[in-house]
Design a protein around this nucleic acid. Sequence first.
DNA 1: GCGACAG
DNA 2: ATCTTGTCGC
Length: 229
Amino acid sequence: MATVRIPGGWPATEEQARAVQDRLRARVVLDEPGPPPGTGLVAGVDVAYDDARDVVAAAAVVLDAATLEVVAEATAVGRVSFPYVPGLLAFREIPTVLAALDALPRPPGLVVCDGYGRAHPRRFGLASHLGVLTGLPTIGVAKNPFTFTHDAPAAPRGSTSALLAGNEEVGRALRTRDAVKPVFVSVGHRVDLGNACAHTLALTPAYRLPETTRRADALCRRALREAAP
DNA sequence: GCGACAG
DNA sequence: ATCTTGTCGC
């Protein structure tokens, strides 16, 4: 699948990386509802690292949104392109993730990222960045609230509470299992927040994390294991 | 200046 | 993210 080429090379410093985020943020589309949950193809992407050997492996797993069955898988291996810096995660993950997505037979209707979208210091997290570069609808589902605040959602699965940056709702804490720690959902690109939560619920029939990210996590770990000599 | 901080 | 064994529970 084709990726949009953005002018400008890969940032070499944190300052340059932040400038890239500030520039690309204008391309994020927030006024589309996104695809209906339970229909079409949904992809999960994740990355595993071996910093000692400077190897990174990414996986993209495509599920049929109606049945949650795997319909396509792809992996890519590369070199670590950026250190982990809170707020700049995308620069560490995106090159290899793009390679894995490009290796898919056809593009999915939605991409679920392991991390944040709008819930980000500059409102341009990994999911937003990946959405702008691919043009695909994206959402972020994270395991931690990062620097944001929230009240605990009610105990039943499906309960939500606002994830707040001051008074701004940048995402939602969403309970995907009864009485289990919530996940943190935020919009990436071309999907609204309510729909992002609905997709997340549709992708969590049995576990706290979406099937997409669980599958992608397992696959990228295997790819890393089978890559490093 | 110090601490916190998606993966 | 990653380093790591057993263990409690459905």
